[in-house]
Structure formats: C-alpha cells, structure tokens
Design a protein around this nucleic acid. Structure first.
Length: 473
RNA sequence: GGUCCGAUGGCCGAGUGGUCAGGCACAGGUCUGCAAAACCUGCUACGGCGGUUCAAUUCCGCCUCGGACCUCCA
C-alpha cells in the first residue's frame, strides 16, 4: 500500500500517515458560514481537500469525508437584520450557491455535509459533558469553556496562554473567569434564533459546532482535520480543547492540515477587508474559468501562500487548452501495464504531502510524450530527463494523463467541448470548407483571408496531416 | 509587542549538501504554401552577511524584506 506523508500542523513536521483504522479513513474539513457568496479564499480549502479525498479514496478502501455547513452564526443574523430577508432563506440560498460554485470548480461533494442547526442537540450534550467534567461553567446565560482547566490548551497553535493574552485585541466580558475563556453557548433575545437549553433559550458559539458534528459523524477521534491556516487559532485550538476535554481523549484529529492563504495584490483576501473576488466573479469569465481556477490553485503547494493574478488564470487556461488539444488528438487505447505505470509515476508526488505542483509538472511530461507520439517529434529529451525508457504508442500517454489528472480533478471533460464548445459551429465549418477549396486551388490569398476572418471571430485554425482542425481562442 | 511562515532566473513555481525541475514569455530551428499546433535548442536562478563543510541555493546564526496569526476570517 502506498505510504502517504503529510505535514502535520500539530507536530509541525512531516510524518507518515497511519490511519486509526486502515479500512476506514475519516476526514473532517471546516466548511463555509453561509451568509454570502463564496470568495476565492473559500475555494482553496475546498479544492485542496477535494484532491486529498480523491487521493485517500485511491489508497484506502473506505473514506468518510465530512464538511459542515455553518448555518447559525451572528454574521448570518446581522445579514438578515440588514436585508430583511429571513435567515432560513439566506442560508438556503447561500448553501445552494456554494454547492453550485464548488461543483463548477470540479469539487466532488463530501460524503456527509452536516449543518450546525441539525446538530444543536449534540452541541448541548457536549456542553453538558464539559460542565460535568469541570471544563465549562455557566454565567449570565452563557456557558464558557475554561481554558485554565485544560493544560494542553495552545498546543495545536503553538502558543501559551500568557502569549495569547499579551497582544489580544479583545474586550474581556465581565462574566469570564479567564480572559481566554470562550463561548460554548450564549443567550438569544426574541429577535435572534435560539433553542431551548438547560441554560435558557440560546444559540451555540462558533467552535462547538465542529466538535459536535465531527463527533456525530466521525467519532470522538478521527484521522485528519483540515481547514484554512487562519482557522488554526482560535477555531481549531478551541475545537481540540472542547473535544478532548469532553471525551478525555489524547487527541481529536491525529493529523491537522492547514492550507495557506490566498492573497490578492499581496494581501489576504477577506470579507472584512472588502478586497475579495467571488468564485462567481471568476466563473463569469467563461465556461473555462472554473477548471482554470482549479488548476491555478493546484499549481501552488497547498501550504504556501498563493497570490492570485488574472495573468495566472489566463496561463492556467492556456495550459488546459494544450492538454485538451493533446487529449483530443490521442486515439483511444486499451489499458496496459505501461499506462498504469505512467499514471502512477505522475501521481507519486501526491503521496509526499500532496505535492500537486510536481504532479502537474509530470502531467506535462506525459503530455509531451503523447504529442511526440501522435503529432511527431522526439521524446528522447523527456525520457532522458525523467530516467524512463517508456515507448508509448499513440494514445497511451494520453490515457495515463487522464487517469492521473482524475485524482487532481482536472482534464476530465470532453476535449471537443472544451475547445469548440459554444455557439453553433456550422458557419465555422463552412468557412473552413471554403478555405480548403481555396487552398486546393492554391488561392493562398483567399485561404489566408478566411483564416484571418475566423481569427477575428476568435477561431484558430490548425492545418495538420489529418486535415484542418479548429478551436476557440 | 508576541508567535509562526516565506524570500528561487522577466513572470509562475518544485526541489536538492556536490550531475536536470517544470511551465509561461522571449530567441533560434524542424515541419508548413505561409501560419498555427507539435517537437528540438537556448535562456544556467536560488534576498544580504557570517558560520559549519572538501563542497551550501540546500544545514546553523544574524540582518533585510514580505505574509499570516494573536478570539469575524478558508
């Protein structure tokens, strides 16, 4: 079995991944708070952990991937007050938008997608456990987690409690015993969503929901917990404290993975800064944009910061154009050990902390191998560089490319649809036929005029030995 | 102020104690009626200063710059 390695935020080291149960791997990722359209930064963990889930499914017999929907939150309440739109309408619409946007980025749905409002009972149960074990206390209608009761608090984010307080930009609520204590449950007035609880009508704090939902769907302890690096503290730190303190366990998730931030113009994209681009903004650029953005995300290692640029998106599109063109040329072939070997080679970098940039580079090598086989040329340079003696016949490297790219969720579409999709193409075909006639008559001026005319319409012609093909620019 | 991360060629972006990343752009070539596409070739980089070492872009220290986090944040 393939040995995966991940950089574990908990230990700050790369380590071998050993599932608690190799027959059933469990993954939890923090999902969106549904009050507004997903921005580019929201998309990064979705795409990154989608690749992780695909990889895990390839390696292990069973994987459960849980990603929550946070549908109770004060930002949602605030949005409802501003707009007058009912909360349930906001969350339902935003959830649907989220699903649509993530599907456009090629992200498969998680196996389970629990909602916070669907797990109020579990949150209350967890809070009761924490009170019973002396890790939480009720005060003025609130229930607070007592960080002083949990010695390991700060271990995940690598800080001690004194440090946390030193530069804290917070007003400490008077009912807190310790400034670091955080809310598990808080009271709701009549205008605010609330549920009956042992502490009166109220609503959960932010962090408790993930502890409750991961517990319900994955158990007290599970393999991997993922999310954005900005969630490391306080969100994940608090989750760990809640879950471990409630269950008396030595860890919550064994491995913690955090994706780096997506920047725009060198600055973190965030709703509070107002400098965010939505996934919709990207998708509006064309039917190619979702997959191009996915490729853009995966061309940078998940733990690094990624500075989004328009030029990068265009470059990603061009790369997909080339890949689909290659796939479109390649003949269909039956499976062979060589195809499997080439695909495995391309995917090999993923086992080392999800090195998608290197896997993509290898995909490009497979593309070159295919092109040299089908279009013509020498594969010697590539084979020499990668130290392989492969001699694929036309179609084989393309098949390996497809198989490997599937794990990245890329290049799975119909090449013809990618290159020639859009409006009715009959006029283009007619123009090409007219040009072929002109060429046959050696009327180069007319042939070139037609070609220029099509180019002005965004149609690029390519004359090959098998005839003239075209694609939209 | 505290904690952490990063700095690679015109741009993007892997990786490594000593032989190659890769892509884009650019230049030349093969092919083509000319192009385009494809293939080939070139473009020999690792922020600064010290240290360890036979050898440092890679390890260590300091510095500079950038970014993230310090209870809204993916």
């Amino acid at each position: 079995m393939t040995q995966l390695r991940f950089h574990n935020s908990l230990t700050r080291r790369e380590e071998e991944f050993r599932p608690l149960d190799p027959a059933h791997v469990k993954l939890y990722v923090c999902g969106p708070t549904v009050y507004d359209l997903a921005h580019l930064g929201n998309a990064r963990p979705v795409v990154v952990f989608d690749v992780l889930a695909r990889l895990l499914r390839r390696v292990f017999p069973r994987v459960t991937y849980a990603r929550n929907i946070t549908d109770v939150d004060d930002k949602i309440n605030a949005r409802a007050r501003e707009s007058g739109e009912p909360i349930s309408a906001i969350t339902a619409r935003t959830t649907a938008d989220f699903h649509r946007d993530m599907a456009a980025l090629g992200a498969l749905p998680p196996d389970v997608e629990p909602t916070a409002t669907g797990h109020i009972a579990e949150m209350i149960a967890l809070t009761e456990k924490l009170i019973a074990r002396g890790h939480a206390y009720a005060a003025e209608g609130h229930v607070l987690f007592s960080v002083g009761s949990f010695p390991d608090y700060g271990k995940l984010s690598g800080r001690n409690q004194e440090e946390l307080l030193a530069g804290a930009r917070i007003d400490v609520a008077p009912y807190k015993r310790d400034p670091g204590d955080f809310v598990l449950w808080k009271p709701s007035d009549d205008e605010t969503p609330g549920w009956d609880s042992p502490w009166g009508r109220g609503r959960p704090g932010w962090h408790i929901e993930c502890s409750a939902m991961s517990w319900r769907h994955l158990g007290q302890q599970f393999d991997i917990h993922g999310g954005g690096a900005d969630l490391l503290f306080p969100h994940h730190e608090n989750e760990v404290a809640q879950s471990r303190a409630a269950f008396g366990t030595p860890f919550m998730a064994h491995t913690w993975l955090h994706n780096g931030m997506l920047l725009v113009n060198g600055e973190k994209m965030s709703k509070s800064l107002g400098n965010f681009l939505t996934v919709q903004d990207i998708l509006a650029q064309g039917p190619w944009a979702g997959e191009a953005f996915r490729l853009l995300l995966l061309r940078t290692h998940y733990r690094s910061a990624l500075d989004y640029t328009e030029a990068g998106l265009i470059e990603a599109k061009a790369e997909l154009d080339d890949s689909y063109a290659m796939l479109g040329r390649a003949p269909a072939v039956s499976d062979t050990p060589l195809i499997t070997e080439m695909a495995e080679w391309a995917l090999e970098p993923l086992v080392d902390d999800l090195n998608t940039p290197l896997a993509i580079a290898r995909l490009r090598d497979l593309r070159t191998l295919e092109n040299s086989a089908t279009v013509g040329g020498s594969a010697a340079a590539v084979l020499s560089r990668i130290g392989k003696a492969w001699q694929p016949v036309p179609g084989q490297a393309a098949a390996a490319f497809r198989e490997a790219a599937a794990v990245l969720g890329l290049a799975q579409g119909d090449p013809r649809a990618w290159l020639q999709g859009g409006d009715d193409a009959s006029a283009i075909e007619a123009a090409i036929a007219a040009r072929l006639a002109a060429r046959a008559a050696k009327n180069w001026a007319e042939a070139d005029r037609i070609r220029a005319e099509l180019l002005a319409q965004g149609v690029v012609l390519e004359d090959g030995p098998g005839g003239t093909t075209w694609k939209r620019a």
